[in-house]
Amino acid sequence: MMNFENLDVWKRSTRLSADIYKNPTLKKDFGFRDQLTRSGLSVPSNIAEGMTRDSDKEKVRFLDIARSSLAEARTQIYIAIDINYIESDVGRAWLNETFELSKMLTSLISKIKTRI
């Protein structure tokens, strides 16, 4: 079993999730903030859950859920920028990170799939 805490994709996704939670401008709309923080929190949580599963098929399933949560968060970040809930430079940094994390997850999924 791989220790998920050693994965860069898990470390970086936890940082992104924490950054989203800490952003003060999101506090003015609880519903929107709740949706974005939940999708952001889902990414490292599903990586952790997946990597502790015994079967590679289960690992891939949870990593795919994490990747989908990134797409959900990315959509919400685009909207948050557009409606001025977050500063454009902060949003662009978060968007770039979601793209990088998605690539990392895709690579990890491909690596695991070669064992299935």
Rank of each mutant, 00 (worst) to 15 (best):
N6W: 13
R38Y: 02
E58W: 09
R67E: 10
S110W: 08
I81A: 08
R53K: 13
I109V: 12
R92D: 13
V9C: 10
S39H: 04
E72Q: 05
K103N: 06
I112P: 09
G50T: 05
I77Y: 02
R33C: 09
L95W: 06
A71D: 11
E72T: 03
G31V: 01
E49S: 03
I86M: 08
K11P: 03
Y78A: 13
R92P: 11
E5G: 09
R67V: 12
V43Y: 00
R15D: 15
S13Y: 01
I112Y: 08
R12G: 09
G50L: 07
L7C: 13
I86R: 02
T14D: 06
P44T: 02
K27M: 09
D82C: 09
T114P: 06
S45K: 03
T25F: 15
R53Q: 11
Q76R: 01
L36T: 02
V43R: 02
P44F: 00
E5W: 05
S55I: 08
S69D: 04
N3G: 15
N6E: 11
T106D: 15
R61S: 11
S88G: 09
F4S: 05
L95M: 14
I109P: 10
R12M: 06
A48C: 03
M104L: 04
V9Y: 05
D8R: 11
Y85R: 07
T75M: 14
I86D: 00
E100Q: 12
D8A: 15
D56F: 07
R74C: 07
Y85C: 03
V60S: 04
A80E: 01
L108K: 11
I116C: 06
L7W: 10
L26D: 01
G91Y: 01
S69H: 07
Y85E: 05
L101P: 08
P44H: 05
Y85T: 01
M51W: 04
S42R: 03
S42V: 03
V43A: 05
E87S: 13
F62I: 02
E100C: 09
D54T: 14
A80I: 01
I109G: 15
G31H: 00
G31S: 07
L7P: 13
R38M: 00
T106S: 12
R12A: 12
R61T: 13
L16N: 02
L16T: 00
P24M: 05
Y78W: 11
L95D: 13
E5S: 12
M51I: 06
R33K: 15
M51P: 09
M2L: 11
L95C: 10
Q76M: 06
R33T: 04
N96R: 11
K11T: 01
G31M: 06
M2K: 05
R61G: 13
A66G: 05
T14V: 10
R92F: 15
D54L: 10
